[in-house]
Design a binder for these strands. Structure first.
Lengths: 168, 168
DNA sequence: TCCAAACCCTTGGATGTCCTAGTATATTGC
DNA sequence: GCAATATACTAGGACATCCAAGGGTTTGGA
């Protein structure tokens, strides 16, 4: 981001909403807009850290997911469900990771429809290094106070449950 | 999203982080991941409401911004700064909005480098209708408790200021 | 048994975002 | 006044995401 703006554009938008008689929804509008912008900032930081590893966030997420799987392999549909992205996005990420030699596709032993994604040794190593970088350069300096982190986890957890992400 | 997962995937990721000895950054990691996922859910809802209007969120944001400008016109660089997106994204959005007859490009009266984006009457009308739809179908049913909305606005406002979005 | 319905993955198309350059216009400094 | 620098927008390319559609595999009910 170049120069900071003199005023918070989201607070201004909220004022505009109130001025137009939409006071009842101005606050949620501001909160939602703030979430969008915060995501954008965080994503940019993460991508910046991952770039030297030749990874994007989407590819990193898949690599990290595989590295936590007991066998180091997962069916594509499982990965799609856990990462909560469209199956085509997983196909895309696997294509590129495979081309980079970080994962392999292998047939499912009993279900001919299913493809397993498997971490290569190089993939496992890179996942470790990238995770260490993200931990120290992004998560350890998130810019959120400790108490705010807990608040966010609680508020967004409730939201995600209500949105149907998970049952428990 | 199809079926809810039996368990919260982000809580699981946090447990994995703790199991690997990264307890100190597990909470911020979970908070950041939750923000990413929440943004994805909200964006999908918004796009769903805007689709019948032939708008995407990016185009709507630009339309809404123009509708609040006194003159109904803004320089492209101003729009880029206020929406906090790359100038090329604004070019892209303006191209499509212009093709749909919702905005016009006009030369800046004194600065030959600058292009003004101007709302057409159709653009203004559509912005109003789309805003009404978003207000009633998304913002009025955000899924956040009133108290949580205030928490989010505060926490994310501080974050955005620290990230250099605005000074005040 | 067997065929229709369900499921899994991929391809192709549309959008949006960013980055890097390139062109045109303004501003600054000598 | 003129050259060097800065600013504004756009073109082209890389990625990611989603949707719609297609081809192969499994499952389940008639």
């Amino acid at each position: 981001m170049a120069t900071p703006l003199p005023r918070d554009p989201i607070a201004d938008a909220r004022l505009n909403w109130e001025r137009h008689g939409w006071s009842d929804v101005a606050a949620p509008m501001a909160a939602i807009t703030a979430i969008m912008r915060t995501q954008q900032i965080l994503l940019a930081r993460i991508e910046g850290v991952l770039k030297p590893f030749g990874l994007t966030f989407a590819r990193y997420e898949l690599l990290a997911l595989l590295s936590f799987a007991r066998s180091g392999a997962l069916p594509m549909n499982k990965a799609s469900a856990l990462l909560q992205v469209h199956p085509t996005s997983v196909t895309n990420a696997v294509d590129r990771l495979q081309q980079a030699g970080l994962v392999l596709r292998s047939p499912h032993p009993t279900d001919g429809r299913t493809t397993l994604i498997e971490l290569t040794p190089e993939g496992r190593t890179l996942a470790k290094r990238a995770t260490a970088a993200l931990n120290s350069e992004v998560f350890a300096q998130s810019g959120f106070a400790e108490h705010d982190v807990d608040q966010l986890i609680g508020i967004l957890g409730t939201f995600r449950r209500n949105a149907g992400d998970f049952s428990e």
